[in-house]
């Protein structure tokens, strides 16, 4: 059996965009969002549709930055936090792009990028999009309590980001602008049973999956944390980050110097009551599109590991006393046309 790492030859992310809600705009990445809506409704009637509107907007911005339209995209891998990916399909309706709905809870961002890179291995696919978003209000309604319910949140609880990110990928030769970033390799995550059944401690539920993916990717690629400018996790939050360090250090690996978590980038702790941090598919997608990819374009980053972390759960499964299974797919992004997995082109 070959190694679990899948190298990708000559694949670039050539355009991207991020959209967010009011709290995301107040946060540190606020100024870098392409669009935000104070009301959180994005012109839609319900929170569920707002999630889709937001995803559609993110895709619209990513397309217009590259001067493209929906018909220029061969297919899109897209998903959100709602049952049957209804937000995504509604949001994508106006574009008419062939769509594959994906669901990896909060890991959807990396999952979509990974699948897009694989799809570009086929000559039939010219440009591929990865799209994801999450909406706080829709997620609360689906997974937790009514919005107006007055209760306290646990200190380990995370806040589902109202945000969406869109990414357009193609092969080098089809890139409309100079190649700034390469998606050089990826690894599919393994579902790991965390044993955690507390819905307000998602960080703890996802940390084992993140630890497994990081350790496996580093050892399989014979690289060390020092070989990366950053090792970025999706939404472990404070608590998940603490547990990730503990799990990895028990296995003789320290990533404290390189590690960043998107869940800790989205909000400003000094003015926002963030508890353990942000979560949701939109969290890592917005952080990647508004923070990390622009840093590659500016030449500030050369190589990062990016893994969105998903906590696969539903209210029913938790009420039935089952634990939350975590999953963490990984991609490696490198500056320009560098590719340490296939050699530079």
């Amino acid at each position: 059996m070959p190694s679990r790492i899948m190298p990708h030859r000559g694949i670039t992310v050539f355009s991207y965009a991020a959209v967010g809600g009011k709290e995301e705009h107040i946060g540190p990445l606020g100024a870098k969002l392409d669009f935000h809506d104070e009301s959180g409704l994005f012109g839609a009637k319900t929170w569920e549709l707002a999630e889709g509107e937001m995803e559609g907007l993110a895709l619209e911005f990513a397309l217009s930055k590259a001067d493209l339209k929906g018909s220029d995209i061969s297919l899109v891998f897209a998903g959100d936090l709602q049952n049957q990916c209804t937000a995504t399909t509604h949001g994508l309706l106006p574009f008419g792009i062939p769509t594959l709905g994906i669901y990896g809870a909060c890991s959807t961002c990396t999952e979509g990028l990974l699948l897009a890179a694989l799809a570009l291995g086929s000559p039939a696919v010219l440009r591929c999009a990865a799209l994801t978003g999450s909406h706080f209000c829709a997620a609360e309604r689906q997974f937790r309590l009514p919005l107006e319910y007055g209760g306290q949140r646990s200190p380990t609880a995370q806040w589902t980001a109202t945000a969406a990110g869109a990414f357009l990928l193609c092969r080098y030769e089809d890139a409309p602008s100079p190649v700034r970033v390469t998606l050089s390799a990826s690894m599919v995550g393994k579902p790991i049973d965390s044993g955690v059944s507390d819905a307000s401690n998602m960080g703890a539920a996802m940390a084992p999956a993140a630890a497994d993916s990081i350790l496996t990717f580093l050892s399989e690629s014979d690289t060390a944390p020092e070989d990366y400018d950053a090792i970025v996790t999706g939404d472990l939050g404070k608590e998940g980050t603490r547990l990730l360090y503990r799990l990895l250090e028990e296995n003789g690996l320290c990533i404290r110097k390189q590690h960043t978590d998107c869940g800790l980038l989205l909000y400003d702790e000094a003015i926002q009551d963030i508890h353990a941090g942000a979560s949701g598919c939109g969290c890592s997608a917005a952080a990647l599109a508004a923070h990390f990819l622009p840093a590659f374009a500016e030449g500030k980053l050369q190589k990062i590991l990016f893994l969105s972390t998903g906590a696969l759960m539903s209210p029913s499964i938790l009420e039935q006393g089952q634990s939350i299974v975590g999953i963490a797919p990984v991609i490696c992004l490198e500056g320009g046309k560098q590719n340490s997995f296939c050699g530079a082109d």
Binding site: R4, G195, A204, D212, L215, E220, E250
Partner: peptide
């Protein structure tokens, strides 16, 4: 076993010391 290294993760101990 095919991996060069794999994560040692003790679910019970993890949840005990959570």
């Amino acid at each position: 076993a095919l991996l060069k290294k794999s994560l040692r993760f003790d679910k019970a101990a993890y949840n005990r010391t959570l």
